[in-house]
Design a protein around this nucleic acid. Structure first.
Length: 455
RNA sequence: GGAGAGGUGGCAGAGUGGUCGAAUGUACCUGACUCGAAAUCAGGCGUAGGUUUAAGCCUACCGUGGGUUCGAAUCCCACCCUCUCCGCCA
């Protein structure tokens, strides 16, 4: 979320910065809402102050045994007006909140302007692209004899799922283990195990809600179930149920559970509503979790293979840092992710996303793209972002600064790496003419010393 | 799933519906005493919002959301969470 103060002080400036990423800020609407908020809040608070002081007088007078009917009558007339104003204030404030919640982050000044992927900036290319003296196969063909099975996955679940067996399943596990060990032993991250199902507040905190619900898997939970039970038992929902909120269908989304689309959500939300002592910064966490994405809107894209799945594993790096440190931390975090590719001997390039290609919550994003021989191109395998205070403001995630005052943290995260896509990259880059796949040196300790996967 | 207890400031822990944003203790900060420290004494010490050049003033917040009332931490309703016992269970 953007700082409402920034919009109040420099609306045109914020609008201009958002325009660079192709977002049109409705400045008229903001000014209208903010204007109304100001007048109604002032008026409401005046009435509240009046009510409070009068009520105090009543208390004092009663204590002395004096007659209070005169003051009572006076205050009673306040009631209706105050109630109306309070209700209106609540409406305006939630409208403002809703307005703010769907505004994307403003790009950092160093982000290259641009409209699409085509305008991204290549930062560096690392590693040599392998050459093959035979016809290269894609990971689907390579995996066929090695235990990669999409048909069985389709039977069990549907499209965009995969089943791994034997050495391939072990290689998948080896990759995750190797990444975790590297980040904990060499990069100073604390390993965490977190829930894969989170509540709506957490999704809102990192920015998936309210705008991107269609990308998530939502689990129908208590409300919907209770409502269904009530109707099945012919009890129905009474007006009292609605008023109490306990069975108000309008609230069901607030009570919903969601499958995490990335470990970023549970891990970053660990600091939601917390004030972290200064000396504990920076916080650095790594988590290996499955990720679940509906992939709504990507019909027809990457339908072959395990590039784009509803479920995939990822090792995620998350940092919460002092605002002065966040850009240095981003470079470090990016380096930590790159280390994995270097150790695996996979060629890759680093791309700095342009203003128009960045995610909703990000102020700066680097993508790491790994070389896939069969596609003869680089494909995204990691995305490393600095969110500055955007997520922290939504989460009220703060630290106590040197002056002893709470201040918003900066949050960062990056894949280190997407395990499924790394598996694809290993299969394709290490394939042999006979259909076998050489196992990268660093993974062999995790593979019981195995050097090769073959039929 | 059944029965019970409870959610108050960093922590602990009070709080007959009326100067309660909240006693007290503890932690922390400042000062005094001390060569220094401990102990002791004095003062300070929540978050957010509004308004103001500022000092300040005002408003909201005692798990969450509603309700009753001139007035709610306190009464009523619903929900969430924690703990204890029983049952079931990886």
């Amino acid at each position: 979320m953007l700082d409402i103060q920034a919009l109040r002080n420099d609306l045109a400036g914020v609008a201009a910065r958002l325009a660079t990423r192709g977002f049109v800020l409705d400045t008229a609407k903001f000014e209208q809402l903010e204007g109304e908020r100001k007048s109604i809040q002032t008026r409401t608070q005046e009435l509240q102050a009046k009510r409070n002081s009068s009520s105090k007088l009543i208390g004092q007078a009663k204590a002395k045994g004096q007659d209070v009917s005169a003051i009572m009558a006076e205050v009673a007339s306040l009631g209706d007006e105050l109630k109306r104003d309070e209700a209106r204030l609540g409406e305006v404030q939630s409208a403002l909140q809703q307005f703010l919640e769907v505004l994307p982050n403003t790009p950092h000044s160093s982000v290259p302007p641009g409209k699409s992927e085509a305008d991204n900036l290549e930062v560096r290319k690392i590693g040599n692209i392998p050459t093959f003296d035979f016809a290269v196969k894609d990971h689907v063909s390579i995996g066929e004899g090695l235990g990669l099975d999409f048909d069985t996955a389709a039977k069990i679940s549907g499209s965009r799922f995969s089943v791994l067996k034997g050495g391939l399943a072990r290689l998948h596990r080896a990759l995750a283990q190797f990444m975790l060990d590297t980040h904990t032993d060499q990069h100073g991250y604390t390993e965490t195990y977190v829930p894969y199902i989170v509540n709506a507040d957490s999704m809102r905190g990192t920015g998936q809600l309210p705008k991107f619900e269609e990308d998530l898997f939502r689990i129908a939970q208590p409300f919907e179930r209770r409502i269904t039970e009530r109707f099945l038992s012919n009890e129905g929902i009474s007006a009292a149920d609605m008023a109490s909120g306990g069975l108000n269908p309008a609230n069901y989304k607030e009570d919903s559970y969601y499958l995490i689309p990335t470990a970023e959500v549970p891990v970053t939300n660990m600091v939601r509503d917390e004030i972290v002592p200064l000396e504990q910064l920076p916080l650095k966490f790594v988590a290996h979790t499955p990720c679940f994405r509906s992939e709504a809107g990507s019909y027809g894209r990457d339908t072959r293979g395990m590039i784009r799945q509803h479920q995939f594993d990822k090792v995620e790096l998350v940092q919460m840092v002092h605002p002065d440190e966040s850009y240095a931390a981003l470079e470090q975090l990016l380096g930590h992710a790159e280390t994995i590719l270097q150790k695996l001997g996979l060629p890759y390039r680093v791309v700095k996303l342009c203003t128009g290609d960045m995610g909703f919550s990000s102020a700066t994003t680097y993508d790491i793209e790994v070389w896939l021989p069969a596609q003869n191109t680089y494909r995204e395998i990691s995305s490393c972002s600095n969110f500055e205070a955007f997520q922290a403001r939504r989460m009220q995630a703060r630290f106590r600064n040197a002056q002893g005052k709470p201040e918003l943290l900066h949050t960062l995260n990056g894949s280190g790496l997407a395990v499924g896509r790394t598996l694809v990259a290993v299969l394709e880059n290490y394939q042999q003419a006979d259909g076998s796949v050489v196992i990268p040196e660093v993974l062999r300790p995790y593979m019981g010393g195995m050097e090769k996967l073959s039929h």
